[in-house]
Design a protein around this nucleic acid. Structure first.
Lengths: 201, 201
DNA sequence: CTACGTACGTACAGTCTGTATGTGAATTTG
DNA sequence: CAAATTCACATACAGACTGTACGTACGTAG
């Protein structure tokens, strides 16, 4: 369990990690614009000088925070998908449910769905989502389609609209007056969407 | 063509309209955070005092701008839907195409899809979308479903995921390297989504 | 040991938002 | 119709925040 790199690199990684760890709950609670850099560095136990040495600007720190959150939730979802890998169609449904659960967490929703597109721009947002989540969707979708012997269709645009539907469903559930009932509703709606894609030839 | 109301009211409406009209292209070009109130009031030919007299704060002006844009694009889409109202299923598809065209405009995309959720919060964003767009989707969807004799399903959650898919599709098309090809692709993907909902019993 | 690069702290300048106060025109009232 | 009041707006100001310039201590290379 030896840390690698020179002492300078170790120190850099430590402060970067501390800043991201401190920024995540703050950004998740009050949004990107609602929390200043001073509060972040105080929570991280460093100064603003350290922040602006490690990150180009505030959005760069936010970018790193987004990546951290995305990596975390993708890991959770992937675990549930691979656990159901025996049945590809059911794995796809399980992935949708896991997605709903993960993105319904208030801080995840705020960071990944509400603030990230506006702050980082759609291009960068989608780039990160591509790196982490969309890959999982496309592979699951192709596996399910081949297993179901559905007509081979361009899978990438389908994956995109699916991801959009998933995002919207998560936002729906998160803000419903009755989240439990909403989760059931949206799960059914998503299942119908998936069935529609897989059933017809 | 007489204007109604007292001179005070007329003046208020005029400055409100001037501010929204001035804010719209600026917010659409450089985003909510990228343009200051001073620039807006200068473009509108008033001062910051007028702005903060007519609107509670900057987000309140942005709220009004969002509503203006939404009203405009909804009008465009509704026109194309009612023009195809004879065939409800085809009207639904026409609505999807009109949606893609409208929300692909860069300023519309930036204001309604990228900035609005983060600035106004999801709740308020969806409230506005509900008032203008979602109503159109649900009515079109129910008309198509009854015409197609598809199984009656809870239409509201379906309309939500559909709207999410439409949002995502518009963002896709807007940022594709080849927007023309992307529009074809996404139109097909959306048609498949709609077919899947309408065909199966 | 010397010279330099790296990580970080501090002080400052510029910008922006929201508010408090002043002013003239419009409306109401005695 | 004149006085008083309200309304729309202009101006000046206070507070906060971001990004940068500069200084410093520690680690590293020659």
């Amino acid at each position: 369990m030896k840390s690698t790199g020179s002492k300078h690199e170790q120190r850099s990684r430590a402060t970067r990690a501390a800043l991201v760890a401190a920024a995540r709950p703050l950004f998740g609670e009050r949004g990107y614009a609602g929390v200043g850099t001073e509060e972040i560095v105080r929570a991280a136990g460093v100064t603003r000088g350290a922040l602006y040495h490690q990150f180009r600007d505030k959005t760069d720190l936010f970018d790193a925070t987004v990546q951290a959150v995305e990596a975390e939730v993708t890991g959770l979802i992937a675990a549930r998908v691979t656990a159901t890998a025996a049945d590809p169609v059911e794995a796809l449904r399980a992935g949708a449910r896991a997605f709903l659960d993960a993105f319904t967490e208030p801080d995840v929703e705020r960071i990944l769905l509400l603030d990230a597109p506006g702050v980082l721009g759609w291009r960068r947002w989608r780039e990160i989502g591509q790196e982490y989540g969309l890959r999982l969707v496309t592979t699951s979708l192709t596996a399910a389609m081949t297993a179901e012997a559905a007509a081979a269709r361009p899978v990438v645009p389908l994956a995109h609209v699916l991801l959009g539907a998933l995002n919207e469903a998560a936002l729906m559930v998160a803000h419903a007056e009755d989240p439990v009932a909403a989760r059931v509703e949206m799960t059914e709606a998503l299942d119908q969407l998936l069935d529609g894609l897989l059933v017809q030839g």
